[in-house]
Design a protein around this nucleic acid. Structure first.
Length: 122
DNA sequence: CTTCTGACA
DNA sequence: TGTCAGAA
């Protein structure tokens, strides 16, 4: 069981906080969606940012977006430069290509938040 | 006891 | 994704 360090959580804690299983959390990490710090014992240590990102990812998954698409969106967000933006690769465009109809707006909103948290991170 | 990595009945 | 094994 872990304790007091505010803002820091063990994988089990993050699991109950996000509703995701430890298995999913580690898997998403492999996909590059999050990068938690480690203790010297290789134990994963999650911060507020990681928890926020995982929650947003969970929202996307709940809406039926395939994890592969989420990964593409996130990785694109991180790598996107002014050059790409000039090419017209807006968030809406990216989402539309991956997620055509219905919840596009909702998805766009969530991904925006995801981007915000991600940037603040680093 | 909890978490980690790797693997697959 | 779940789950089990073996180690830390």
């Amino acid at each position: 069981m872990n304790q007091p360090d505010k803002g820091l959580y063990s994988i089990s804690k993050v699991s109950e906080l996000t509703g995701l299983t430890p298995r999913q959390i580690r898997y998403y990490e492999d996909k590059g969606l999050i990068s938690p710090r480690r203790t010297e014992g290789k134990q994963r240590v999650y911060g507020k940012k990681e928890v926020s990102v995982l929650k947003e990812i969970n929202n996307l998954v709940k809406q039926g977006m395939p994890l592969s698409s989420i990964v593409e969106l996130i990785n694109t967000e991180e790598t996107k430069t002014s050059a790409e933006i000039l090419k017209g690769n807006t968030l809406a465009t990216q989402i539309t290509s991956l997620y055509p109809l219905n919840n596009r707006q909702e998805v766009e909103r969530i991904v925006s938040r995801l981007r915000a948290v991600k940037r603040k991170k680093e």
